[in-house]
């Protein structure tokens, strides 16, 4: 087990249902994410990909196996305020403005608010003009960008993205992916993205792990090394299409 990055060693997760029945969400998952890597967990719904993310975030405990983030338990990372998470539901507080929402992690960590850092980030995600707007005044895509800015504000060691664009329409989603690639190329944080969108995973990640359901397990790993940078043109290359086709077929088969 390496001391840096995220490592899951034969992790298993079962949930107890009523009448002493149990449900195995994940079985025998061994996975390493290197420091500074962008990994995508791809799979059909019910394959336990979000459960992996919730365990890395310390929101769930593995039933068996070992899980470490940079050599320590997930709760330690959380207590040191070194984890950033963007949820499928943006989870912005409706009574705070965009600026206040993004500065909240500083307050929760009891650190002085770095206004310049927040303004830089809002610039980076294209929300500088909306810093004093309330979430309800923003579009769905803008809320997700604010949520991503909030997850990045403390320069986390690890960034977890749980289908952050799942609720958006295809066009907005594509634009968000371009922006996320741009933001990530500037921050280079160890990132795990959970998605069921093959193109999104292939476009953003350096490595895609395909999961199968019942019980959730790793089915395939694909290291992506495109010649092209992750910008506009990538989705139109033959290489990109080949990979997407292959992984899509794999998802259909599982």
């Amino acid at each position: 087990m390496s001391a840096s990055g995220i490592s899951l060693d034969r992790v298993e997760k079962t949930f107890s249902l009523e009448k002493r029945k149990t449900f195995t969400a994940l079985k025998d998952v061994t996975l390493d994410v290197a420091q500074g890597e962008f990994l995508a967990l791809l799979g059909p719904s019910g394959c336990g990909k979000s459960t992996i993310l919730r365990m890395v975030a310390g929101l769930e405990e593995p039933t068996a196996g070992k899980l470490a983030v940079n050599g320590r338990g997930p709760r330690e990372l959380v207590n040191e305020h070194r984890l950033g998470v963007a949820f499928q539901d943006h989870a912005l507080l409706p009574w705070l403005t965009v600026f206040q929402n993004v500065s909240l992690p500083y307050q929760l960590a009891k650190r002085p608010v770095d206004k310049a850092r927040i303004d830089d980030l809002l610039e980076l995600v294209g929300l500088a003009r909306f810093r004093d707007a309330f979430p309800r005044q923003l579009s769905g895509g803008m809320r997700q960008r604010a949520s991503i800015a909030r997850s990045l504000v403390l320069k986390p060691e690890v960034l977890l993205l749980d289908e952050p664009f799942g609720a958006l329409d295809a066009v907005t989603r594509r634009r968000m992916n371009l922006e996320l690639a741009r933001i990530w190329s500037e921050e280079r944080t160890t990132t795990v993205l959970v998605t069921h969108d093959v193109e999104e995973a292939v476009f953003l990640a350096q490595r895609v792990v395909v999961l199968a359901a019942n019980p959730g397990r790793i089915r395939h790993e694909e290291v992506l090394s495109f010649d092209t940078a992750r910008t506009e043109g990538l989705e139109r290359t033959d290489e990109f299409h080949h990979v997407v086709d292959r992984l899509t077929r794999m998802l259909d088969a599982s």
Binding site: A57, G58, L59, V78, N79, E80, H81, L83, V85, F87, D89, A91, L93, L104, P105, L108, A109, L160
Partner: peptide, 14 residues
């Protein structure tokens, strides 16, 4: 409290 907000506070080490 919405579960998503609660999760956010938990992972932020509140």
């Amino acid at each position: 409290v919405s579960p998503a907000h609660s999760d956010f506070f938990t992972v932020s080490g509140a």
